[in-house]
Design a protein around this nucleic acid. Structure first.
Length: 476
DNA sequence: ATGTGC
């Protein structure tokens, strides 16, 4: 590809060969049009990530990649602790454990249609959201510690949700190795009464209809059927994760010279996995993962209350909960054998195949549900993980449609009022706390989800299982 | 993404 030093390796695989300070090559996943449309910033950021100490080949860009903070969003990068590998607070980013959770109802779209506006109003009233949104629960210091160590497991013991939900969460709903003590008092204060709130930006709660089943076997195993109503929740660790990132980036930047690390980009603040700074960040990050898991668990409870009031006897079963901004310790086959690596996924979801040992029992033989949220007003997809995924992907897939326009550009170009009108015209009940923020999320500011999913499916990162369409959407 | 926007 002219001027970009990209070599096409396969129909959907492009290589960025090492140059300059790069230690390993990068692989970019996507069709020719997707790669053509990539912003240069993605390539620069990939080169920077590939220059970090202890990075394991290759650094990967998913089909939904776009420029992010330090790492591109839609990036997977693994590091070897025994080769001086680092963990990067900037790489994981500000919204630690931002993720998607999908609940499946036993309702048909026809059941919801007559009360769609009422349902949207009820969800909007019940689910706290918006910038600075509070009104969830208020945590004592003791409960804060329990939440940070216990995640969704803690939330269930507090009465939010059902024990059965936990087997349908990554890590069983509780991330091991969390160190609540590594979470600053400022981070705690920001979260004090924000747990169970949706947040803002691209976060949303969507009521969806299963529009098409693409893989009957996987869909049956997941409990998906045509016309079924589902609810997807997309949110993260709110102010706490943001503050953990801020705190530890400052610590890592200060410690970098001591570890002999010169940062290619100050946003890539990192520390050796084996260092005190690295270990402390990992402990705090895992606590933030628990915060996000607990938050989505609390929201699940609120959603169930709303549905129970409108549809007596209705049950919402959790399909799965995935995080797409994390760093996790996993074993992966590499040229050096089966290595234990720290895998950063920034805007990338894990996609475990049917025989992966970390897969929850319920999905053995099928693969992990891979939840991919589309842009506002467009389709979302549920895919299933596959054993045939290319090893270079470190068992990962895309996480969304991916932006084509930055937030500021999008706001300038798309007034919120127009976005609201367009979605309303499409039969979607939209409720938003911030009209201006809607412009940021205009569908035109995102790639075509169909193109992204086609690439992921074609690469074998995950297999298309079902497509869902929004009926109602709650925005921060 | 986010209690501190360019």
């Amino acid at each position: 590809m002219g001027g970009r030093n990209l070599t096409r390796r396969e129909a959907l695989v492009w290589e960025l060969a090492p140059s300059g300070a790069m230690r390993v090559p990068c692989l970019l996943f996507g069709s020719s049009p997707l790669i053509d449309a990539l912003e240069d910033g993605v390539l620069t950021q990939l080169r920077n990530v590939a220059s970090l100490p202890g990075v394991v080949a290759p650094v990967v860009a998913m089909p939904d990649a776009h420029p992010g903070y330090g790492f591109p969003i839609g990036c997977v990068a693994a590091f070897d602790p025994e080769a001086g590998g680092v963990v990067s607070a900037g790489g994981v980013g500000f919204d630690i454990a931002c993720g998607v959770r999908t609940l499946l109802t036993d309702l048909d779209a026809a059941d919801v249609a007559p009360v769609r506006e009422v349902l949207a109003d009820a969800l909007f009233a019940r689910i706290p959201a918006g910038l600075g949104g509070t009104g969830g629960l208020r945590l004592s210091e003791r409960d804060m510690d329990r939440m940070l160590a216990g995640g969704a497991v803690w939330a269930v013991t507090e009465g939010y949700g059902e024990a059965g939900d936990l087997t349908r969460c990554e890590e069983g709903g509780r991330m091991e190795g969390a160190d609540p003590e590594a979470v600053s008092s400022r981070a705690r204060e920001r979260q004090r009464d924000a747990l169970g709130t949706l947040g803002s930006g691209n976060h949303y709660l969507e009521v969806q209809r299963v529009e098409e089943i693409c893989d009957a076997r996987a869909a049956a195993a997941f409990g998906l059927r045509p016309d079924q109503v589902a609810v997807s929740i997309h949110c993260g660790s709110r102010g706490l994760g943001h503050q953990v990132a801020t705190d530890h980036m400052a610590i890592m930047r200060q410690a970098a010279p001591r570890h002999g690390i010169s940062l290619p980009d100050r946003d890539l603040a990192c520390a050796p996995i084996a260092s005190p700074e690295g270990a402390r960040y990992l402990g705090a990050m895992r606590a933030a993962i628990n915060c996000a898991l607990a938050g989505r668990q609390v929201i699940t409870h609120l959603v169930r209350e709303v549905f129970a009031a409108l549809f007596p006897g209705c049950h919402l079963r959790l399909l799965y909960d995935v995080s797409h901004n994390t760093c996790k310790v996993e074993r992966h086959p590499t040229r050096r054998g089966n290595q234990q690596l720290h895998v950063h996924r920034k805007g990338a979801t894990r996609a475990l195949g049917p025989s992966h040992p970390d897969l929850p029992q319920a999905f053995r033989g099928v693969g992990q549900p891979v939840l991919v949220g589309g842009s506002m007003g467009t389709a979302s997809y549920i895919l299933s993980g596959t054993d045939a995924s290319p090893p270079a992907a470190f068992a990962s897939a895309c996480h969304g449609a991916g932006r084509t326009l930055g937030r500021k550009q999008a706001v300038k170009r798309f007034p919120g009022r127009g976005v609201l009108a367009a979605l309303t015209a499409k039969g979607i009940s939209l409720r938003a706390h911030d009209l201006r923020g809607l412009g940021e999320e205009a569908p035109q500011a995102y790639k075509d989800i169909e193109e992204v999913i086609q690439a992921a499916h074609g690469l074998g990162l995950a297999v298309k299982t079902a497509r869902l369409r929004p009926l109602a959407c709650i925005k921060g």
